[in-house]
Amino acid sequence: MSDQPDNLVLLYLRRLDERTGRMEEDMRDLKGRVTLLEQRVAAGFTHLEGTIAHQTARLDRLENRLERVERRLDLLPPAAE
């Protein structure tokens, strides 16, 4: 009987972990899409706006790389798979 609640808690924690992992992936996808939109909109405007959109894209890529490095060094919890 006492094993059942522990298993339920673990089950719900695993589900939350999976959902969090999917949300992280979705956020990365959305950031990439917004950056692409910024670049396309900026292409119709001045060079300065295009440069800003380009810098945003570079920062997004650097953020993803830094997160991967932090995970490898165990500075962040592992991503849900």
Rank of each mutant, 00 (worst) to 15 (best):
K31Q: 09
L8E: 09
L59K: 06
R19N: 09
R19G: 15
V69E: 07
A57R: 00
S2I: 11
L36S: 08
A53P: 02
L59P: 04
R28K: 12
A42M: 12
M23W: 07
R65C: 15
A79T: 09
V41A: 04
A79Q: 09
M27K: 05
K31T: 02
S2T: 04
E18G: 05
G21Q: 02
E25I: 11
L73R: 05
L75P: 12
P5I: 11
A80G: 11
G44R: 06
E67F: 01
Q39C: 02
L11H: 15
G21N: 06
Q4N: 03
M1S: 02
L37Y: 12
T20F: 12
N64W: 11
D60A: 09
R22Y: 01
A79E: 12
A53M: 11
P77W: 01
P78V: 10
R72Y: 00
H47R: 03
A53H: 07
D3E: 01
L59Q: 12
A57I: 05
L76C: 10
L16G: 06
L75M: 10
A79D: 04
H47Q: 13
A80D: 07
A43N: 06
N7T: 15
R33P: 15
V34D: 03
L36T: 05
A80N: 14
D17K: 00
T51W: 08
H54D: 03
A42E: 14
M27F: 08
S2G: 04
T46Y: 05
M27V: 14
D74C: 05
R14L: 00
L75C: 13
E38R: 08
G32V: 06
R61F: 01
H47E: 12
R33Y: 10
T51D: 11
L73K: 12
D3P: 00
L73I: 03
D60N: 05
L8I: 08
Q55Y: 12
A57C: 12
D6S: 09
E67Y: 01
E63I: 08
E38M: 04
R72K: 00
V69K: 09
R61K: 01
L36Y: 02
V69N: 13
E49P: 04
T35Q: 13
E25Q: 13
M27E: 05
E81M: 07
N64A: 13
L10N: 09
G44L: 03
T56G: 14
V69Q: 10
E24S: 14
E81S: 04
L48T: 13
R22C: 01
R33E: 09
R15L: 15
L48I: 13
R68P: 10
T35L: 12
N64R: 13
D29I: 08
K31P: 00
I52L: 04
M27Y: 07
T46S: 09
V41T: 06
L37N: 11
E24N: 15
L75V: 10
L13M: 11
E49Q: 08
L59A: 15
P77E: 06
L73E: 08
Q55A: 11
L62K: 00
